[in-house]
Amino acid sequence: MEIIMSILAGILFTTGVYNLLQKQLLRIVIGTALISHGAHLFILTMGKLKRGAPPILEYGVSEYTDPLPQALILTSIVISFGVTSFLLVLAYRASKENNTDNMDQMRGTENE
């Protein structure tokens, strides 16, 4: 199971990086979202996947799922959610102001 999840995270990373390297601004935003999904999936996998065990640590329980990766993912999801929504607004405003969403034309060499 861990192997499949790792491969899935890898695919998300690959597609994310591919999109990140595109010229169109919206694709880049989607790329960052894909990468963050990959990262979250990866944290879950790294904490070892287990089924049927409670995530809470109690006295006398020997079988339990590690609660820490879940806490980490939750934090990370909230952060990337906030950043992505900010990035969408920023991308919209920047393309409006500059009259283009092509990163080639947004390089900005005039003030060198």
Binding site: S36, I43, T45, M46, G47, L72, S76
Partner: peptide, 13 residues
């Protein structure tokens, strides 16, 4: 930042 999270996941494992 995303790489940072991934690295922490590696380290945690």
């Amino acid at each position: 930042s995303m790489l940072f999270v991934t690295t922490i996941a590696f380290l945690y494992s």
